[in-house]
């Protein structure tokens, strides 16, 4: 555990909790892509099946349980409790175009051809693109609430910090996981355009809106 990994995890946790609290407090999930949230729930479910097979640390187990619990709570709020506020008309990204290729790739490129390992690989690949329905929704409506942009910022920051963590681990532990690294780089790149808008607009007190 190094400082980049820890702050990365905490940044991820912050993102998840910001989103959940935003929806809960405002009693509205307007502007939030339910599809992205379902994909993240799927990511956590398929990745953390090892909760049942191996114990790494109390920290590891606790965080996994929190991530899974919060992601299902978010999906529940969007599709059940606050369904009336869900903006389904703008959430039109075709997720099968992500799931099918990602599933195929997980079968072809993995560390070990075993069920748990393929599901882990699937979750890594899927996570790298799971935010696309949300970004697509923002590009479609041309704007995002400021609190939603904070959520996206922390989610992107988490992946960027993990990249530094992997560089650290490579130098100091000789550890590298090519699948996680390549997917992590892809994931971070997807946030670059958003980061630019976040820094140039949101941090200067303006609302994030895209030119028509």
């Amino acid at each position: 555990m190094n400082i980049f990994r820890l702050t990365g995890d905490l940044s991820h946790l912050a993102a998840i909790i910001i989103l959940l609290l935003k929806i809960w407090k405002s009693r509205s999930c307007a502007g939030i892509s339910g599809k992205s949230q379902v994909l993240f729930a799927l990511v956590f479910t398929t990745r953390y099946l090892d909760l049942l097979t191996s114990f790494i640390s109390l920290y590891n187990t606790t965080m996994k349980v929190i991530y899974i619990g919060c992601s299902y709570a978010t999906v529940y709020l969007i599709y059940m409790k606050l369904k009336a506020t869900y903006d389904g008309n703008h959430d039109t990204f075709r997720v099968e175009f992500l799931i099918v290729p990602v599933g195929g790739l997980a079968f072809l490129v993995n560390h070990d051809f075993s069920p748990l390992e393929i599901l882990w690989t699937f979750s890594i690949y899927l996570e790298s693109v799971a935010i696309l329905p949300q970004l697509f929704m923002i590009s479609k409506t041309g704007e995002a609430e400021t609190i939603t942009t904070h959520y996206l910022f922390f989610l992107g920051l988490y992946r960027a910090l993990y990249l530094i963590n992997w560089i650290w681990r490579f130098y100091f532990e000789g550890f590298f996981d090519m699948i996680a690294i390549v997917a992590g780089v892809v994931q971070t790149i997807l946030y670059c355009d958003f980061f630019y808008l976040y820094v140039t607009k949101v941090l200067k007190g303006k609302k994030l809106s895209l030119p028509a």
Binding site: R5, S54, N60, H111, D112, W120, F175, A180
Partner: peptide, 10 residues
């Protein structure tokens, strides 16, 4: 040395 399973990251 490359990856070790189980995966220790989140």
């Amino acid at each position: 040395h490359a990856l070790t399973m189980p995966h220790d990251e989140l």
